[in-house]
């Protein structure tokens, strides 16, 4: 059944979009991620303009992280004080990201920046994840305990001033890296249409030493708020949020995530990380391919202004 997407301005098969929502939802539930870094590229690959894909996926991530955040809230696994600190700069990052997004679109280089950023981000993160999980796998093969590497309990981050205590996470850290991380995630999320969970969780663990008990729940709160505000800002400035596309994706995503979560629980953590790493790396390569290979059509059209 074809439906017409009002903002993307093209007809699509409703079952294709719903299926994509289900598939990405399944993967996001399985790995405990938002799935934006898969959803946005998938939409771009089926022909939705990159700008519309990015702007619309933000609301999809807001929905899936809200579902996640609620369940972590019930388990009391959210450090609200830390989340608030991250948010104070996260919103600023989102606003900066939306502003740069508008600017890049104006000079016709948005698609390029989205493509390049995806290549850099996804191949790097993917390669690191693959390396880390292969090493963990090898260690278990040798019969050693698969311990998470925790280098010296203090690093340079802990030498910074403006220290604050976050009771629930039981950490005492400077506010500067907290703000820095919040800003970075908000900024990247708004430009690339990703929640940034797959970057945020490692950052919180390695830089701030946030314990595993609160790290995912807290990261979901940041994702939720930055993505919901990105939706509002993209809608208010660029008018590119396709509510109908978002609705179908969200419904598919919320359902798919439940089945994914069940499958994920039956798999070993290292195996999951390896799979996720391969997936992230593959999407990065796909973008690289897109940039390097000569496109079939060199020309494209963009509306500057109507009457």
């Amino acid at each position: 059944m074809q439906i017409y997407l009002p903002i993307a301005d093209l007809p699509v098969n409703i079952f294709l979009v719903l299926g994509m929502g289900l598939a990405v939802g399944f993967i996001s539930g399985m790995f405990g991620i938002g799935g934006g870094f898969l959803m946005t590229p998938l939409l771009i690959f089926v022909g939705i303009p990159p700008a519309v894909a990015v702007a619309s996926v933000t609301s999809h991530i807001a929905a899936s992280s809200f579902t996640g955040a609620l369940s972590y809230w019930r388990k009391r696994a959210i450090d609200l004080a830390l989340a608030m600190m991250l948010l104070s700069s996260g919103i600023l990052g989102t606003a900066t990201g939306v502003y740069l997004f508008t600017l890049l679109r104006e000079v016709d280089q948005l698609d390029l920046v989205i493509g390049l950023s995806y290549v850099t981000l996804l191949t790097t993160v993917g390669a690191l994840m693959i390396k880390e999980s292969v090493q963990a796998e090898l260690r278990t093969r040798k019969g050693q305990a698969a311990t998470l590497r925790r280098p010296g309990s203090h690093n340079w981050v802990h030498g910074l001033p403006l220290k604050m205590r976050f009771k629930r996470s039981k950490i005492y850290v400077s506010a500067i890296p907290v703000w820095g991380i919040g800003f970075t995630i908000g900024f990247i999320g708004a430009i690339l249409g990703i929640g940034g969970g797959f970057l945020l969780v490692p950052m919180l663990i390695y830089f701030l030493r946030v314990p595993t008990a609160t790290v995912i729940g807290t990261s979901m709160v940041l994702t939720l708020v930055t993505m919901a505000s990105a939706t509002v800002m993209h809608a208010a400035t660029n008018h590119l949020v396709d509510a109908l596309l978002a609705l179908i994706l969200i419904v598919g995503g919320v359902i798919g995530a439940q089945f994914g979560a069940r499958t994920g629980q039956t798999m070993r953590a290292e195996r999951l990380r390896l799979l996720l790493g391969l997936l992230v790396f593959a999407v990065g390569l796909r973008f690289a391919f897109e940039l390097v290979v000569q496109p079939d059509e060199l020309f494209s059209i963009r509306l500057v202004r109507g009457e």
Binding site: S59, A62, V241, A246, L247, I255
Partner: peptide, 13 residues
Amino acid sequence: TSLMALVIGWIGS
């Protein structure tokens, strides 16, 4: 649109 996303997310949970 944001509210719609949150409501569906909440229903899902």
